[in-house]
């Protein structure tokens, strides 16, 4: 068994869920997280404004509230984060490649901020309702 943790764009989530369901993997956990990558929270190369050059980078938009305003001015620098969705699913070993491939295909826009996918081993799984363990629990 392997655990696939995918951190993807928020707007790609419905499509991703639908395609995973069509592939036969309806079970997954979704969490709202904040993340950043090599760009340190800057939104680079975005397609919000086509007139901007490709090299243009801007801080991720912080919602202006008194709290964030105070935070921005109280600290020397504020770490920037971009809201993302984290999907976690546990799948049998032989299907990892297929799922990772379809996740990449779906979520690829070619712009920075597409996210990361991590694959890690899981020793055992237990279905609480029936006490089934191992492969039966995730089937």
């Amino acid at each position: 068994m392997k655990e696939i943790t995918a951190i993807i764009r928020r707007d790609k989530l419905p499509e991703t869920k639908k395609v995973l369901e069509d592939l036969g993997f309806p079970s997954l956990s979704i969490q709202s997280v904040d993340g950043r990558g090599k760009q340190r929270g800057m939104v680079c190369n975005n397609d919000l404004d086509p007139d901007l050059p490709d090299s243009y980078c801007t801080p991720a938009k912080l919602k202006k509230t008194p709290a964030t305003y105070a935070l921005e001015h109280a600290l020397p620098t504020v770490a920037l984060f971009v809201p993302k969705r984290m999907l976690t699913m546990v799948v049998p070993d032989d299907l990892v490649g297929k799922i990772v491939k379809s996740l990449i295909k779906l979520n690829q826009t070619g712009k920075t901020g597409d996210g990361k996918i991590f694959v890690s081993p899981i020793e055992n799984a237990i279905r609480v309702r029936t006490s089934e363990t191992g492969g039966e629990a995730i089937a």
Binding site: Q108, K116, I117, F118, V119, S120
Partner: peptide
């Protein structure tokens, strides 16, 4: 915890 593989979605 161990991670066996990591993929960058943008480049695949």
């Amino acid at each position: 915890s161990p991670v066996e593989a990591a993929y960058t979605v943008r480049t695949g």
